[in-house]
């Protein structure tokens, strides 16, 4: 029963997001129903930790999974940590992922009208120093939250 509900929910969400993703993948933004699509700032580095399409549909599941692993079990892999997302995607202008409506998280979430409460507690900007301790190379450790 719970599984069924879960599937149903996932299915619904997938449908909605597929729609959003399709809109965002459209070649010209003004073409779709007269609504401007969010223009996302490109993150730092060459590419995201996952395929862009995959991220559009699944970032919330990855983050939620990581959140419980890190918080409750102390597993601190950084590949899908919110902190690392923020480090790459913080805006050049505002230094944040959600300070202005154009910033990475805020742009898409306000467009899709999906409220998120991550930023009630989590920092929207990268820390001043890279969090890794001196003797561990940063691609391995980062105390990802």
């Amino acid at each position: 029963m719970a599984k069924l509900a879960g599937c149903l929910r996932a299915g619904l969400r997938l449908a909605v997001l597929a729609g959003v993703a399709a809109l965002m993948a459209a070649p010209s933004s003004e073409a779709v129903a007269g609504v401007d699509l969010p223009k996302l700032e490109r993150g730092k580095g060459e590419k995201c930790v996952e395929d862009t399409q995959f991220m559009r549909r699944n970032h919330m599941d990855l983050l939620k999974h990581q959140r419980d692993e890190t918080m409750r079990k102390g597993i601190r892999t950084t590949r899908h940590s919110l902190k690392r997302c923020v480090e790459c995607h913080a805006s050049e202008k505002t230094g944040s992922v959600a300070a202005s409506k154009e910033d990475f998280c805020a742009a898409c979430h306000s467009y899709a009208s999906v409220k998120l409460d991550c930023w009630d507690c989590h920092a929207t900007r990268p820390g001043k120093k890279s969090a890794a301790s001196p003797h561990v190379p940063s691609q391995v450790n980062g105390g990802g939250q």
């Binding site: 102390g74 902190k83 009630d120 507690c121 990268p126 820390g127 969090a131 561990v136 939250q145």
Partner: peptide, 25 residues
Amino acid sequence: DQNPEVPRGKGCVESCTFCVQRVDR
């Protein structure tokens, strides 16, 4: 402007964590 390693926010309870973010490294 929370410390990125120590998320905290309105409406939740909090306490000493033994600085778990430091202990884990």
